[in-house]
């Protein structure tokens, strides 16, 4: 369970986060969606103890992030945006070090590491130096590392950024599998399809403020179900419809080229903010 109220962060005169409030119940897959600079990573950095908040309060499974910081940190695992594995250490050593930091007893640590390496398909690479792994393997290893201490909350900061479509889908499957075990997932992303495919609820974040929180389906439904994109004066104009029939009827009268598609979260975000997520 993640709770925060009026959480704010200011760097000098610049607000990175302007008093956001949110409740994520235990076991939920929650996505935090917004363009670069919206405050997604700042929220996550505050919750995981990497950055100090300027205002507000935050709790992880009831533990205050600063007053009970050690307990709060034990609740969560973090998969940062930049891969921060120790390149000079082996796959096993990286996971073992994490287990030591979280004070996992040796026998349990070893069992858990072997289990996780099999889980992410790196069972045969435990003696390899991290520097010799591919980008996708490193990303999977970063996720596995965050799971060594069996956290009840997993924070993922843009976990698939820079990965190709095939690897991205494998990572999605892995994250979904983790959530099925009862772990609360808090995902920040600017990939629309990622949030739409994975999350049970989504928050739209823009300029440090949460502007909407709902299920992906409900956010999309606010706009309609079908959309027609038309090229008008070097720009794309989109018209939304409740049903496919309405959209088809509308398209009959169009002289310019157009495309018919389903409404997605990008449309919902655009309607609320006037800007695109990416």
């Amino acid at each position: 369970m993640i709770d925060f109220k009026d959480l704010g962060k200011k760097y000098g005169a610049t607000y990175a986060l302007r008093g956001v409030t949110l409740h994520v119940p235990e076991g939920e897959f929650f996505a935090y969606l917004g363009p670069n600079g919206a405050g997604k990573s700042t929220t996550l950095r505050i919750l995981t103890g990497l950055t100090r908040r300027t205002s507000g309060e935050a709790y992880l499974n009831g533990f205050h992030i600063e007053r009970d910081s050690l307990q709060a940190k034990r609740q969560c695992g973090l998969v940062p945006q930049a891969i921060n594995l120790d390149q000079e250490l082996t796959v096993y050593e990286n996971l073992n070090l994490h287990g030591l930091l979280f004070r996992i007893p040796a026998a349990e640590r070893s069992r858990k590491i072997n289990e996780l390496l099999d889980y992410i398909g790196l069972g045969d690479r435990q003696g390899s130096l991290v520097s010799r792994l591919s980008g996708g393997m490193k990303r999977r290893l970063t996720i596995a590392r965050a799971l060594v201490h069996s956290p009840r909350i997993l924070f993922l900061d843009e976990p698939t950024v820079g990965l190709d479509a095939g690897i991205r889908r494998r990572i999605w499957a892995l994250i979904k599998k983790i959530q099925n075990n009862g772990t609360t997932i808090f995902l920040t992303t600017h990939y629309i399809e990622e949030a739409e495919f994975l999350a049970e609820r989504v928050a739209f974040l823009d300029e440090g403020r949460i502007i909407a929180v709902d299920t992906p389906q409900a956010l999309i439904a606010r706009q309609g179900t079908w959309a027609i994109d038309r090229v008008v004066d070097d720009d794309i104009k989109t018209v939304y419809f409740k049903t496919r029939e309405e959209a088809t009827q509308y398209s009959v009268n169009q002289e310019e080229s157009f495309s018919l598609r389903r409404v997605n979260l990008e449309d919902a975000f655009l309607a609320l903010t006037g800007k695109k997520v990416k």
Partner: peptide, 10 residues
Amino acid sequence: HIFEEFQAAP
């Protein structure tokens, strides 16, 4: 960025 691993640890 390995320092973050220590910062996020209890």
